[in-house]
Design a protein around this nucleic acid. Structure first.
Ligand SMILES: [Mn+2]
Ligand SMILES: [Mn+2]
Ligand SMILES: [Zn+2]
Ligand SMILES: [Zn+2]
Lengths: 143, 143
DNA sequence: GTCGTTTTGACATTGAATTTCGTTGATACC
DNA sequence: GGTATCAACGAAATTCAATGTCAAAACGAC
């Protein structure tokens, strides 16, 4: 399997776009950062390495990373779009505590299978899905 | 089962809020309109009946209707929050064509059951969930 | 009627995300 | 080397849904 960096370079080349130091740094930071980062949060982190970078570039690059499938946009309903590295990673959904924000990654074969079946029943080819479960975790329930 | 109008009045009374002509009209229009309306769209429709109404009132009333459980906010990822009447209606999720926007309401007992089970496995009490399936419908695939 | 509270509509403000625009920087060709 | 071309950049302006502010109006209690 190609490295994310190579996959991104190939995507850019394919779209007649260029790999740049900024794009490289943003991808690098995103991969290190791990999960569920907002554009603002990523911008702050990137700025430490390269204070001259603009936040429009971070927004623009996150869009490129989404389009290329390297990164997945998430909607935890907290007012900002968050992202997680998705290249080479198994798909998963999220179980979120509405009180403390705790976020558990879940994957259920039965659900995934039913989603495909439902789409097929209605004549759809399924491209993607979003599923978020919202509740209260055991820690928060104790209080 | 109470009518939505009565249920809303009772909710308002319970919260020490008042039923007003504007709130009545907005609820009435929402119920007639049916499914998947944005606040702007609803505002346009309401304005025809009462041109003096302000759109802040529509936003405010939609919030009340959400809080009271009469209406459900939806996120079809098109940049605006949409709403549908939910009082007395069975919960459902959505299967959306990414090309033509066709929107099919779905409900799968197996999925709903698994969602509960997953939450329980992780010690969560499940409050709600969002599930959207995105794909291409058969009509759009023909072209 | 008066008083006190809630609601309203007009308007201003917020904040994430996008767009604009002049400059920078890489690549290609000579 | 020089220079023409064009994508990409950073700063700032703009967009747009949604929320907040505020003075006036409506309502209810008395
Ligand atoms: Mn995740
Ligand atoms: Mn629906
Ligand atoms: Zn919690
Ligand atoms: Zn379609």
């Amino acid at each position: 399997m190609k490295s994310p960096q190579v996959a991104f370079s190939e995507y850019l080349a394919n779209e007649n776009l260029k790999m740049t130091p900024q794009r490289r740094l943003i991808l690098e930071t995103m991969l290190k950062q791990g999960d569920h980062v907002s554009s603002e949060e990523l911008y702050a982190r990137v700025k430490k390495k390269d204070p001259s970078i603009g936040q429009a570039t971070v927004y623009r690059t996150l869009k490129l990373l989404s389009d290329s499938g390297l990164v997945e946009p998430l909607d935890f309903a907290d007012g900002v779009t968050r992202y997680e590295p998705s290249y080479g990673k198994e798909h998963h959904d999220h179980l979120i505590c509405e009180k403390c924000g705790k976020n558990i990654e879940i994957l259920d074969a039965i659900i995934e299978h039913r989603q495909e079946a439902i789409a097929k029943e209605h004549g759809f080819t399924l491209n993607s899905h979003k599923m978020y479960l919202y509740g209260i975790c055991s820690d928060c329930r104790k209080e």
